[in-house]
Design a protein around this nucleic acid. Sequence first.
DNA 1: TACGATGTTCGACGAACTACGAAATTGACG
DNA 2: CGTCAATTTCGTAGTTCGTCGAACATCGTA
Lengths: 128, 128
Amino acid sequence: MPRSTRRRPALAHPATEEIDLLDVLHALSDPTRMTIVAVLRAEPERACGTFPVDVAPSTLSHHFKVLRESGLISQREEANRRFSALRTVDLERRFPGLLDTVLAAYGRPGGEDGGRGGGPGVRGGEAG
Amino acid sequence: MPRSTRRRPALAHPATEEIDLLDVLHALSDPTRMTIVAVLRAEPERACGTFPVDVAPSTLSHHFKVLRESGLISQREEANRRFSALRTVDLERRFPGLLDTVLAAYGRPGGEDGGRGGGPGVRGGEAG
DNA sequence: TACGATGTTCGACGAACTACGAAATTGACG
DNA sequence: CGTCAATTTCGTAGTTCGTCGAACATCGTA
């Protein structure tokens, strides 16, 4: 078999119009995945293994799959690394303002002690 | 014991500052609960049993509990009926624009056939 | 070819979720 | 008081979710 052919099925992403709101909300309702999205908001793209999350590689891979299949992120392959990026343009076209609003909300400190979704260690582009 | 005392623990609602974003997103990621929220957006309040959802009463009660504990809705008792209302003011203060943006997104038709989150059969409901 | 690095897939497990029916609670009405 | 109506609580079944470890695949390099 040709060595240039990747065995992966080209990383199926949903088309913009197929992005389902409930899938997106579900994907965002997990702290690990929300962290990934928040980090991705500040950078154009990033390799999978470089996210500040504390889970096993297989678990991380699962989360990326959920994010990708929900339409929140896209992934491209480069060598044996996989880079993820937020689908900001598609999301904005499909659900205007949603991503910005949700991420702004995520940046808000909570009345609790900043446990779960209160104080993310990610401030993305707020400063800039 | 005084008969005027309701046995229910006064329907605990989270304080505004305690509303957790991930809990809210998770609550909204279920089609039944999203329908409830969408209906509630059009009316100030509504009795539990009058929502256009197709689940058993006990299941519905569970969904209302999830919505209430997430901070999305408030419930008050009147006789043996329980009225639910969106906590629009609290939500707006906690997560500005979130509710509007999500519900606007929910109203968008999808590329699919409008099955799940595409076209909610909810508009005014004033007819009843 | 062998090795290390990166990342996925598979199989498993416990926890959480959604669903339902039955029973219990509460209030209105006769 | 007895009954109906609305809703919750309890117990339970089936599914989904998040997590991990082990094994596999790919790429770059020695």
